[in-house]
């Protein structure tokens, strides 16, 4: 995450706001919500169901030009805005 912030490239856009916007638009159905914290578990908040995970993966791949391996589709990488952003930043920098 830190790495991504300190070494921005031209095609980089701030990751966390884009992830938040997607989640708010598609899972929370509310904008600029104070209800959803960056560290909050999406599953514990009942925001993500089994189809939601697939929607999220498709969004990340399209938006950030990454390809997620099966083994990467795990809650550790995807269960909060912060975790997702960190994961995407790692993928893009690798």
């Amino acid at each position: 995450m830190l790495q991504a912030v300190t070494q921005p490239s031209l095609d980089d856009e701030p990751i966390a706001p884009a992830v938040r916007a997607f989640i708010e638009e598609n899972f929370l159905f509310r904008s600029n919500s104070a209800e959803l914290l960056d560290d909050q578990s999406l599953m514990a908040a009942d925001l993500l169901d089994s189809t939601g995970v697939l929607e999220l993966v498709a969004f990340l791949e399209e938006r950030f030009g990454i390809v997620m391996q099966d083994a990467e589709i795990v809650p550790e990488n995807l269960d909060s805005i912060r975790a997702i952003s960190a994961f995407v930043a790692r993928k893009r920098s690798s």
Binding site: S50, T51, V53, L54, D70, A71, I73, V74, P75, E76
Partner: peptide
Amino acid sequence: GLQNQQPAY
């Protein structure tokens, strides 16, 4: 949707 799911999920 479930068939495409990883074990962790």
